[in-house]
Write a protein that binds this DNA or RNA. Structure first.
Lengths: 130, 130
DNA sequence: CTAGTTGCAAAGAGTTTGCATGGCG
DNA sequence: CGCCATGCAAACTCTTTGCAACTAG
């Protein structure tokens, strides 16, 4: 999809990929990149493209009140479930074996087939839980 | 919080509680109740109050793009995890035992404490999976 | 040079809020 | 009758879109 590598797009990808365990709102991203002079519309357009390409995923915080974007490391994010800490907002990968067991169990017991892409488990991470 | 039982609030609660396995956007609700003459602002105000009271919960669909509201049956919704079908949008309750195992496992293996209130698992339900 | 990308501003969609009116108790 | 809730419209926020100017290749 992306034909030209503009400095705005490069800066955006560089920033998101450098913080692939965090997610950001469109506004936060435009603020972070403010010294690179990227417009909010370019942020949205690039995020949409990157999401369509599967390089960025959208997650919700606060039961859908806020939309955040996050770089998706295609290698390890493919088949795993994500955990997001409600406090620090960082993303973690659920242990693959546990995820497989969960998905299998739910399929067996309730015939519900979990979609790994749209499912995120929220809670408190080890670092934030004192 | 609610001091008066107006006909608008009654109609809203009646509608949501009659479809407690489904969730609706504010606009959908106002359309459903259009014959009862409820304004969109009254819908939002009542939903906010009901959410604060714990009688309604907010869920996100489409990775946060859309916000839906759902009646919370306080009895059985207290301690369980919710499943939402990406196709029919209906809500199911995850088997309590399986939920407990999941939560325990994640706490043990990754020291991540799942919050039952904010977590929803998305996928395809038995009825929609052919 | 040429097509894709940007910035700006305007347009939409969703949600919140102020204020006068109306209705519950 | 007094206070709360409603309806309306305006204000706000977030996101999308049209168009002319710019720029990567």
């Amino acid at each position: 999809m992306s034909k030209y590598i503009t400095k705005q797009r490069k800066n955006l990808i560089d920033f998101l990929s450098a913080h692939s365990d965090e997610s950001f709102s469109a506004k936060q991203i435009s603020l972070e990149l403010s010294e690179d002079n990227i417009s909010i519309s370019a942020v949205y357009r690039n995020l949409s493209e990157l999401e369509a390409e599967g390089k960025v995923r959208r997650v919700s915080q606060g039961n859908g009140r806020e939309i955040y974007y996050q770089y998706t490391d295609s290698d390890c994010c493919k088949g795993c479930l994500h955990l997001i800490c409600n406090k620090c907002k960082k993303t973690y990968h659920m242990n693959t074996k546990d995820a497989d067991i969960l998905i299998y169990t739910l399929a067996q017991n309730q015939h519900f087939q979990i979609d790994r892409k749209s499912t995120v488990l929220y809670g408190i991470c080890a670092a934030c839980h004192i």
